[in-house]
Amino acid sequence: MTGHVVPVRAYMGVFLALLALTGLTTWVSYFDLGPMNTVVALAIAVTKMLLVILFFMHVKYSSGLTRLVIVAGFFWFAILAALTLSDELTRNWSPSPAPWSFLLPLIRGLL
């Protein structure tokens, strides 16, 4: 026999866990948790993804080389997301006035 055979009972367990997590994420979305809304939804989605990858996709039993390729893929996506959002989310961080703001009263006076 080639490859690891996962018992049917494990598949059923993962299936039921995925259904339960789908129910949980839907239920939780009816409560306003503020900024935690997105965090909770994504945390549940990542948990579901790990269940699918580890058991349905057999990565729990796969070689280190395959795992390295998968982790590298997600790492590259993390770079893509982090560098894109580092611009978007930090645009209004600077609390200091713009260097030319001392000219504002002067400009207003002229107008």
Binding site: T22, T26, S29, A45
Partner: peptide, 13 residues
């Protein structure tokens, strides 16, 4: 991932 991002976040409360 599409399900929470499109349907759930900020959708219902």
């Amino acid at each position: 991932f599409l399900f929470p991002l499109l349907y759930l976040i900020g959708g219902h409360y």
